[in-house]
Design a protein around this nucleic acid. Structure first.
Lengths: 143, 143
DNA sequence: TTATTGTGACTACAGTTGTAAACTAATAAG
DNA sequence: CTTATTAGTTTACAACTGTAGTCACAATAA
């Protein structure tokens, strides 16, 4: 099967993806306008980004006739999860907890989000280890 | 005052920072060896990265004589928080909750970490809004 | 004091990213 | 049909990254 996953979406591309995800599907005109308003980008810039996203198979062109429609191929949730995992993979495992704490504190979360997180944590508490090891260097250290 | 903050640390540089943070301070030899073992990098690569980190003022050279000692200028916690914030800033605010949920599920957390997160959530629940708005496009949408 | 070596500084170079102009092909207007 | 307009494709180009070689100088051994 084709491997449409696993491609890195850059920061600017991410902006375009957000628009496409939110709109569900869009024409290049709609995207160009949105990106111009949001980021002040020229039409060319949005076109280029859209193109790169198509090459990366993060977005697909639909409708045979000329004003094509663009739709996301990769899901927003999955992409965000991948990006977040990628970030935490580069950090010391020992520090993940406090980093997550910081994120939670600085973000707006709905009641439902919070309830969900609480449920997950309650479950996770059952099997949580006393300590998490630092994995920054070969050999056990504590950073 | 000098602005030592606010510089972007790239992925490879991050690896070096992790080593320095964990060691507390290190000579280039120690770092070169660690990076060689961890990532298989040549000595030159580590030297270059170290240099770039010095230029970015993320690391400082200490001790006047030749085998210098390198120490972190930016803290690990702050850097991680900045990186995480940066990531979430590029995502739809509406999706932050589920992304955090994914991260929590996929990471190892200590009992203390979990207790801390629970405390933060309990506090946050008091003032949590019913809904978080999507901030991907101008004008309210729901993505 | 000179030869050797470890360490730091400078140079290199291809690939990626951000940003956009120019060109071409399709469609709509006259 | 010819022209003007729009949408899509190619090309551009500087800055940044990942990766590493080479050069110069300080420290040490002979």
């Amino acid at each position: 099967m084709e491997d449409a996953k696993n491609v890195t979406i850059t920061d600017s591309e991410w902006m375009v993806m957000r628009a496409i995800w939110t709109m569900g599907h869009a024409t290049s005109r709609e995207l160009i306008d949105a990106m111009n308003e949001l980021e002040g980008w020229s039409a060319s810039t949005t076109k280029t980004l859209l193109h790169r996203l198509i090459q990366k198979q993060a977005v697909a062109q639909h409708g045979g006739s000329r004003p094509f429609t663009y739709k996301p191929v990769v899901g927003e949730k999955e992409s965000m999860a991948a990006a977040a995992d990628d970030l935490f993979d580069h950090m010391c495992a020992m520090r993940a907890g406090s980093t997550i704490a910081g994120v939670i504190q600085s973000r707006e979360l709905s009641r439902a989000d919070i309830a969900n997180l609480q449920a997950i944590l309650a479950e996770k508490a059952k099997t949580a280890p006393e300590e998490v090891q630092c994995n920054c260097l070969p050999g056990d250290q504590t950073c």
